[in-house]
Simulated assay, not measured.
Amino acid sequence: MAGSRFIPDRGLTTRMVATMALLGILYVAFVIALYLVGMPVVLLVLVVVGFAVVQYFTSDRIAMFSMGAREVAPAEAPELHAVVDRLCAMADMPKPKVAIARTDVPNAFATGHNRGNAVVCVTTGLLRRLDTAELEAVLAHELSHVAHRDVMVMTIAGFLGIVAGFLTQIGLRFAMVTGGARSNNNGPAPAVVALLVVLVSAVVWALSFLLTRVLSRYRELSADRAAAYLTGRPSALGSALTKINGDMARIPTTDLRRAEPFNAFFFTPAVSQKGFSLSQMFATHPPVERRLAQLADISRQLGTGA
């Protein structure tokens, strides 16, 4: 991969291109369908273009604000910056901004629509639980997301689902308000148009949801693999995964729910590991067991046992 020493992943590149192509086709079909069912052109352009611009340029700030994160200078977090500096030198990549989120939920994430404004953030809960080697492995995982540009792809990919979800909610509320009101120009009643918008949006939301989830699970495996090879210590990443997932069940449910909307960008999902839930069938991350098995295979390949 150009621009860094993280191992290239043609599988990830292929999946990102395929996902973006399918979402692009779905996006065009979505706009045409909304026009055909009678959605006003001005509103259609405002929603489609407006959401695209806001999502692309503000997604990183929204994520940082929602997680209560702030950028920290080297003087404020010298050890954290030292680890990021070392990894960026090893990977031969520009250093992103470094941030800390004050929450006991042990996690990390990368955000930013391009490398120039990329941010790598860790929580205070993560810093408290991991040793230096484990922290380095987790940060290598997040930096690989930046290097592979899959943060940008996931930001763009998530846009369609956000628009579809928004229109579904607005359409339902509009249909309830207008009720049996009739059209003024012999066209379909406003409530009918609203319900058709809801139907189209719901279908598009479901399809975009499935596409992004498939890509998200693969990108996590790819980032694990890239981090393990860069650091040469896959066991450190495995240890971090085990620690974090073991402690996640001890985090208050309210804290987990607050962090859950950003699961697709987290190192590991902010959900309790107790029992089974339907959401696990459409998870943003592969099962921990699969991630640990991949790391064990890499350890054998490296022949270090590290």
Rank of each mutant, 00 (worst) to 15 (best):
L22T: 04
A157G: 13
S4M: 02
F6Y: 05
V122F: 01
L87C: 10
V47G: 04
A2E: 15
L195D: 01
T111D: 05
R128P: 04
V37Y: 00
L34C: 09
V105M: 14
D297S: 13
E260C: 12
D150T: 04
R250Q: 10
S4Y: 10
L130C: 09
H145W: 08
R128V: 06
K274A: 15
E289T: 12
A140Y: 06
M67C: 11
G303D: 00
V138G: 07
A175E: 01
L195M: 03
A110S: 15
V198L: 01
G179S: 09
P190E: 04
R115G: 15
L44D: 12
L23F: 09
A21S: 11
T168Q: 02
V138H: 04
S183M: 04
L195E: 00
A147N: 01
N114R: 14
S216H: 10
E71C: 14
G112L: 09
V98Q: 05
P188I: 11
R128E: 15
N184M: 14
D60G: 13
V198R: 07
M281H: 10
V192I: 06
A147C: 02
V41G: 03
G11S: 07
V45Y: 11
M248L: 09
I170P: 07
I100Y: 06
R219E: 07
A164T: 02
C88E: 07
V49N: 11
A206S: 05
M248E: 08
R129L: 10
D224S: 06
R291F: 00
G275S: 07
A249C: 03
L26G: 00
V193R: 04
V49R: 13
A63L: 14
R5F: 10
E136Y: 01
V72R: 06
L87W: 05
P261G: 11
V17T: 13
A264R: 09
V119E: 07
F51E: 04
F174W: 08
M248A: 00
M93W: 02
A194Q: 03
K97E: 13
T231Y: 00
D255P: 08
G50R: 05
T178R: 02
Y218L: 13
D9N: 10
L160N: 04
S272R: 11
V53W: 12
V83G: 11
E71N: 15
V122H: 00
L23P: 02
E76P: 12
T14C: 12
H113T: 15
T58A: 12
Y27P: 01
V153P: 05
F51D: 08
E71H: 15
A240Y: 02
K243H: 08
S222L: 10
V163S: 06
G11Y: 03
F65K: 15
G275P: 03
L46Q: 09
A306L: 15
I32W: 05
N117M: 13
Y56C: 13
F265M: 13
V192P: 02
A223W: 01
G238S: 08
R61L: 14
E220Q: 08
V163F: 07
L172V: 12
L126R: 05
Q169H: 04
G11K: 03
Q273E: 14
G125W: 01
G50N: 11
D247N: 12
L23V: 03
L23W: 02
A202K: 11
R10S: 14
